[in-house]
Amino acid sequence: MSKKLSVDYIVVDVTSAYNALIGQTTLNRFPAVVSTPHLCMKFSTMEGIATIKGDQKLACKCYNESLKFKRQPAEQKGDPATWSLYVGGSSNKSGNRAGVILESNQGTRIELSLRFEFPTSNNQVEYEALLAGLKLAKEVGAERLMVFSDLQVITSQINSTYQPKDPIIKKYLDEAREQLTHFAEGEVRHIAQDPMPELMPSPN
């Protein structure tokens, strides 16, 4: 049993235990159900349910190998790069879309376009983009991070000047604050304009 699906990947030169990451949008297109502890994915085909199983021993070996890559001491590698994370999103009748730009002062630039297949608000879309960007920044090993968002209510919430009443938004806020603790230096700022309208995927 098989099923073909065209997927665009972003290639990043970083030390990681993963060869590839498949996002929720792609999994929804199969549709697929994933169990990380069992290294197993199931999805429907014309012939029935197909199952893909990973090799537990090989996965452990790859993970252990990735841990061997030690970071150089600070006196050898110099100052760590400063990364800027730009997030923006919108939720309307044409769809729920967002964009993420992560770039360093050393010339690295990563762009992500996100589309959500579930009902959501502007605040939720912005938080989804923010969380995706923070996880990406953590994956590339960023230590200094500046986050920029055009939605002032989000930046105010993260900077503790405005507390949300919506329990769903409160969960997003708690997760974003937890993710920010992974960086040695992290700051969230508001910008007046959407930083990436060209990255917003088409609703079609």
Rank of each mutant, 00 (worst) to 15 (best):
Q56R: 12
N64Y: 14
I168L: 13
F69Y: 15
P37W: 04
E75H: 12
E128T: 01
Q163S: 14
S121E: 11
I52S: 04
S156D: 14
I169Q: 05
G23E: 02
T155F: 02
R29I: 00
G99D: 04
P31K: 02
S104L: 02
Q56I: 07
I49L: 15
T120V: 08
N96D: 09
K170M: 09
E143I: 02
M196N: 14
A17I: 15
F69P: 01
I101P: 00
L27P: 00
Y86H: 09
A184Q: 12
F43W: 04
P164M: 02
L21K: 08
Q106A: 10
L102G: 02
T161M: 04
M46I: 12
E126R: 05
E143G: 02
M1I: 12
A192L: 12
I169R: 07
P195S: 05
L136P: 00
D79H: 03
I158R: 00
W83Y: 13
E128A: 09
C62H: 12
C62S: 07
M200Y: 15
T45E: 01
L102C: 03
P195H: 07
P119M: 05
S156E: 06
Y127F: 12
K42T: 11
A74I: 15
L67D: 00
S94H: 13
Q72G: 03
K171C: 04
A81S: 14
K57P: 02
G48K: 10
M46V: 09
N123R: 03
G107N: 03
Y127A: 06
Y162W: 15
E65M: 08
T36H: 07
K171I: 13
G99P: 09
T36R: 05
L39G: 13
P37T: 01
L130D: 04
S44A: 09
A32T: 10
V87C: 12
C40E: 13
K171M: 07
G99A: 12
L134C: 00
Y18F: 14
S91R: 03
A59H: 05
A59P: 02
Q76I: 14
T15Y: 12
S202I: 08
S44W: 07
A81K: 09
F183T: 02
Q152W: 01
P201T: 04
E128I: 01
R71M: 13
E111D: 05
T25V: 11
P197R: 05
V7F: 03
F43Y: 15
K70G: 01
E175T: 14
D150P: 03
E126T: 11
N64P: 00
R109W: 02
